[in-house]
Design a protein around this nucleic acid. Structure first.
Lengths: 160, 160
DNA sequence: CCAAAAATTTGAATATTATTCTAAAAATTA
DNA sequence: TAATTTTTAGAATAATATTCAAATTTTTGG
């Protein structure tokens, strides 16, 4: 029983599993793998998109290929009133900021930022974050090496 | 001048930009958009894959649709020797763990975890993390709300 | 449990795209 | 500049996407 009455079945899960691993798998292949007609798969994929189960398809690009070699997490304390997220939206507009999370505890945010290098990070903090009203303090954590970085969800194996 | 002599040009950047926004854009459409022959685009995409500029294509699935409503970041201190990452690899094997980063400073890791709910998180920490040798301590940060979550890179507009 | 309604699937037909390959063009190199 | 290498275009073929009506399956309400 899903909250928003989305109700996915095993076939949907299989489609999601395939798509999550390779979003460019074509309909015909999915159909073959699941032993169904291509038109039926097409119909289901469209519905998964409509129901916003599938949010988007994206290519994962190697950051190193674009010289984006520094990954950082920054904790940001703000004067945002609880519930309001003025600063969060400003942070979200920054292209180098990949994630903005409102976190429990420290009345603040955790953001994930990708820059060319340390100089790029300093530049961003000084010239972009520094200009945002409402930021009280920041604490930066530098990533030395990323061992795993995916956004794959655990997909149920069976409907109950 | 790229480190690994990858050398991408403007056309590559445009392809990456399109693919990053919609990995299911077909060759014909890309070709039309860039005013080139489909065969040329195909050739380039293949090369981008071979050169590991494009790492993979994935569908972004709505966590809520799969009842995965709790996102957490956990700092993990370990007895791993600097440079060694034994614990990191064990952490990376956990399906609920989407990211594992070796971070500067605290001789530890930062991981990103997605579970159904708080109970799922507790369960994971107790039954999975708890069984990993070498974990000294953990500090968990709960995400109340995610304002932005993408992995899109900033793609240069022009080659110099 | 049954009948009606709704949703899903199939299968075939058509439109569109992917892929291959050769020749031409462009870029690079010596 | 000439030779070499790389890239592109264009055409031909293979494959896939998409549409749609009919059949099937599932769901619903009594």
């Amino acid at each position: 029983m899903k909250k928003l009455e989305i109700s996915l079945d095993n076939i949907d899960y299989q489609i999601l599993r395939i798509m999550q691993n390779n979003a460019r798998t074509n309909n015909a292949d999915i159909a073959r793998e699941l032993g169904m007609a291509p038109s039926a798969i097409l119909e289901r994929v469209k519905k998964l998109e409509q129901k916003e189960v599938i949010l988007q398809y994206n290519a994962k690009i190697n950051p190193a290929a674009l010289d984006q070699n520094l990954l950082s997490f920054i904790f940001i304390k703000t004067s945002d009133i609880i519930g309001e997220q003025g600063v969060a939206y400003l942070l979200a507009e920054i292209p180098e900021v990949q994630e903005v999370h409102d976190i429990a505890g420290d009345d603040g945010y955790l953001i994930k930022v990708r820059t060319n290098d340390a100089a790029g990070l300093v530049d961003l903090m000084r010239n972009t974050l520094g200009k945002i009203e409402g930021i009280i303090s920041t604490r930066t954590t530098i990533v030395l090496e990323t061992v795993k970085e995916e956004q794959k969800l655990v997909i149920p194996t069976q409907t109950v």
